[in-house]
């Protein structure tokens, strides 16, 4: 009986969380960020290094520090850690933030799109997919 009660309670909680998540501003922002992230797909992926480095675990990582990735000297010596603030500056105008970066991209100029993209990078960067990547790493 106790077990049934606790299972039932868990189910109700899960349903509440589920219904709250769908359509909430945070969920909408994440979806918008995912859409903006599609613009990066020619050069970036979450789980693999491509023309640009992978984005799993980006927040909290030192700029230019993915092992083995051929960064520009400018990015290698950027000297900061990726967080919401540094990402916001860089994504607004990569070349003026880090002159000499290989990311020859004008930037995400819309504040709302940038905010959504950063939220997406933060959340997706610690998602199950990304945790799986860490597990697969040698």
């Amino acid at each position: 009986m106790g077990t049934f009660r606790s299972k039932g309670w868990l189910l109700i909680c899960a349903m509440l969380v589920g219904s709250a998540a769908a359509g909430t501003p945070a969920a909408d922002e994440y979806a918008r960020g995912a859409q903006v992230y599609e613009r990066c797909a020619a050069c970036h992926a979450l789980e693999a290094d491509r023309t640009g480095p992978h984005h799993c675990g980006l927040i909290g990582r030192r700029a230019g520090s993915v092992p083995g990735f051929p960064y520009s000297p400018a990015m290698r010596h950027a000297g900061f850690v990726w967080n919401e603030k540094t990402l916001d500056r860089f994504l607004r105008s990569p070349l003026t933030t880090i002159p000499g970066t290989s990311m020859g991209y004008d930037g995400v100029k819309d504040n709302g799109e940038r905010r959504a993209l950063i939220l997406f990078l933060r959340e997706a960067g610690h998602s199950e997919r990304c945790r799986g990547m860490s597990a697969r790493a040698p």
Binding site: E38, R39, C40, A41, A42, C43, Y105, D106, G107
Partner: peptide, 15 residues
């Protein structure tokens, strides 16, 4: 990938 390429070139052109 093609969509990303469009965005990448679009972002490069002004530079």
């Amino acid at each position: 990938l093609e969509k990303g390429a469009v965005s990448a070139y679009l972002g490069a052109i002004p530079l």
